[in-house]
Amino acid sequence: MLNKLNWRCVLYILTAILGIIWVVLGFGTYGFWSAEEGPGAGFFPAIVGCVLVFFSIVEFIKSIGSDAVKFDKEALYLVASVAGILILNFFIGLFPALVIYYVAWLKFVEKYPWKKVILITIFYGGIMYGVFSLWLQVPFPTGILLSWL
């Protein structure tokens, strides 16, 4: 039995649990129906939750024994990129973090020569910085290193 379960089954178990949470909170805490006011804050979410639970179970049963879901190991590159950007962002701010990631990806993953890396970075980073930061005045976070300065 257990070896027939795959990631798909796990996903539908999770959506069913989510549905149950929505139903319980909708019925219990937020108010499903009141005599004077009609439907309450929990009315709509509770109904949606019920539908979700029902179809999650249907789909769960259908998924048992289906082909296993394989995740690509290449996805780890993205996970690492995102983690790197978030950590750098904490210290030096979002925009510098993204620029460093950009350079690192082109240099160490794509193995471009430095000259090309820097030209591309200046071109693209310049557009992004010019449009979002200078023109549209988006206040990007600056990170804790800068606030110490």
Binding site: I85, L98, F132
Partner: peptide
């Protein structure tokens, strides 16, 4: 990296 950057921004 370009798409990831613009997703963040």
């Amino acid at each position: 990296p370009s798409i990831l950057m613009i997703c963040f921004i």
